Amino acid sequence: MAAAQRLLPSPEATDPATGAEVQQRWLTAFAELADLVNPGFGHIAPYAHGGQTASEARIDKKQHPGRELRDPSWTVGRCRQVLRGYSWVTILAGDLADRVGGAEALMSTGAFVAARRLANGGMWLQATADYREYDERASDPVFRALVPAASGGPGPPAQAAGQPPVILVYADPAAAADDRPR
């Protein structure tokens, strides 16, 4: 499992009556799978397009030439060295988990409601208890906590017609490193 990706929302996952139960089923299934392998990356996100994460899709290649590292044809094979993206649930490769300080350090940032080592390597990170609570405000501390694992930076927001909203911090990780909670 070099990479796993699940696109939410499904109507059931965001429905006020069924959302919490549906989300819990997805979380359980995804966590069980992640514990079986040594994952390089995974996420449950509101955005997926052609296998790209929001971070990969939103890099402005004209503004940031040479940022091919944000292209999935490059990042999937290097997901143990470069974080592909982040979202409501992010599965971080073990090598990157060490770079950001591990579960205890990540929990101390306040960015996550859950951060734990996976059984066979890597780390499970969940930003909010409920998917419906994951928004731009919740994504900022996640981004800042994961800065040491990231590279490159997104360009200006560009919302594609018919796509779910992109929840992403539009800042270069290198510039945000000084703002990282410790």
Rank of each mutant, 00 (worst) to 15 (best):
A3P: 00
A4C: 07
Q5F: 13
P9L: 11
E12I: 13
E12A: 13
A13M: 10
D15Y: 03
D15V: 12
D15G: 02
P16Q: 05
A17G: 00
T18F: 04
T18C: 00
E21L: 14
R25S: 09
W26C: 05
A29R: 11
A29Q: 14
F30T: 13
F30A: 08
A31I: 02
E32K: 06
E32M: 07
L33A: 14
A34M: 15
D35G: 11
N38H: 10
P39N: 08
G40P: 01
G40A: 07
F41T: 03
F41K: 05
F41S: 13
F41N: 02
G42L: 10
P46H: 08
Y47W: 14
T53G: 06
T53K: 03
A57I: 01
R58L: 00
I59M: 04
D60G: 00
K61L: 05
Q63R: 10
G66W: 06
R67H: 07
R67Q: 02
R67P: 01
L69Y: 10
R70T: 07
R70H: 10
D71H: 09
P72M: 02
P72Q: 02
P72K: 07
T75H: 03
G77L: 09
G77R: 04
C79W: 00
C79L: 05
Q81R: 12
V82M: 09
V82F: 12
L83E: 01
L83D: 04
R84F: 02
G85W: 03
G85N: 06
G85Q: 06
Y86R: 09
W88I: 12
W88T: 08
T90Y: 04
T90N: 04
T90W: 03
I91L: 15
D95E: 15
L96I: 13
L96Q: 10
V100F: 10
A103P: 14
A103W: 06
A105C: 05
A105Y: 01
S108V: 03
T109M: 07
G110H: 06
F112H: 11
F112V: 11
F112I: 13
V113G: 07
V113P: 05
R116G: 10
R116C: 08
L118P: 11
A119F: 06
N120K: 15
N120F: 04
G122H: 10
G122R: 12
M123T: 12
M123I: 07
L125M: 09
A127Q: 04
A127V: 12
A129Y: 01
Y131N: 03
E133M: 06
E133K: 06
Y134C: 02
D135E: 04
E136T: 05
E136N: 04
S139H: 11
V142M: 14
V142W: 07
R144A: 09
A145V: 13
A145T: 12
L146P: 11
L146I: 11
V147H: 06
A150Q: 15
G152I: 09
G153A: 04
P154M: 02
P154C: 03
G155Q: 00
P156R: 01
P156H: 01
P157Y: 00
A158S: 05
Q159N: 00
Q159M: 02
A160M: 03
A161S: 10
G162V: 12
Q163P: 00
P165T: 05
V166I: 15
I167G: 00
V169S: 15
Y170N: 01
D172K: 03
D172C: 03
A174C: 01
A174L: 14
P181H: 08
P181L: 11
P181G: 14
R182Q: 06
